[in-house]
């Protein structure tokens, strides 16, 4: 049962390693988008400190959105996806493996880089920890929901813009609780409620997301 999961995971991680530039481009995008905001709103430290959690979360969300096409695009183009769908292994299993590989190669670097960016915005030490934690809990939801959108728009003309329209409204709750966790911590009310809700959302998405994604892939590959 676990063998196809591990095999697909290892394959996708190896492919990501061979194409390291792609992963770094996503990380670079995240950093640059976050660095643009001070130019737009001014370099006043108090203001920057206040909007930092929101900025970093929006940047992480956009970085996820723009890299979602990598999840199935290549496999769809070269026919691997069709073979995987034809294989007797349960679709949900290898879909989950692909999403996990995607999260490890795309979102995990963002989680690791986020504290560094937080320092640019003069966030305090404890806030950085909570930011890291909220990103670690929230980005799996983004990956799982985004995978459904990526599967639905597979092979369509103008798929990128369409994907944004489909998934961004669904990302709003994650943004609210993710950025809210940091703000709650900084204002002294404690971030545990936000973080628990994010964990609950992640578990819910983990249960339902791969099914919807598998159904969408079957529709797309027909």
């Amino acid at each position: 049962m676990l063998k196809p999961f591990v095999a697909v995971l290892a394959r996708d991680l190896l492919l990501a390693w061979r194409g390291r530039a792609d992963v770094l481009v996503t990380l670079g995008f995240f950093v640059i988008v976050a660095c643009l905001f001070p130019f737009g709103v001014g370099a006043e430290p108090n203001q920057l400190r206040a909007i930092a959690p929101g900025i970093l979360w929006v940047a992480a969300l956009l970085a996820t959105l723009l890299s979602l096409h990598r999840l199935f695009g290549q496999d769809f183009a070269d026919g691997t996806l069709e073979h995987l769908l034809l294989s007797p292994e349960p679709t949900v299993l290898w879909v989950l493996a692909k999403i996990l590989a995607y999260w490890l190669t795309t979102s995990l670097p963002l989680v690791v880089a986020a504290p560094g960016l937080g320092m640019l915005f003069d966030m305090e030490q404890g806030g950085l920890m909570v930011l890291c934690l909220s990103l670690a809990l929230g980005t799996p939801i983004l990956s799982l929901l985004g995978a459904v959108g990526a599967a639905l728009t597979l092979g369509l003309r103008g798929g990128g813009m369409l994907l944004a329209l489909l998934v961004l409204p669904l990302f709003v709750p994650v943004l609210i609780f993710g950025a809210g966790a940091v703000e709650a911590h900084l204002s002294g009310t404690g971030a545990s409620a936000h973080l628990l809700l994010l964990s609950g959302g992640a578990l819910g998405a983990l249960v339902l997301g791969p099914w919807a994604c598998a159904a969408a892939l079957r529709v797309a590959a027909e």
Binding site: V148, L152, L170, V172, I176, F177, L208, V219
Partner: peptide
């Protein structure tokens, strides 16, 4: 079929969006 999947995913998310926005 793609529209059907999207409509169902959206319907699951509508209450979540509503309550999260309310809390925010």
């Amino acid at each position: 079929r793609a529209g059907a999947i999207l409509a169902l995913v959206g319907a699951v998310n509508v209450p979540i969006i509503y309550f999260s926005v309310k809390w925010w």
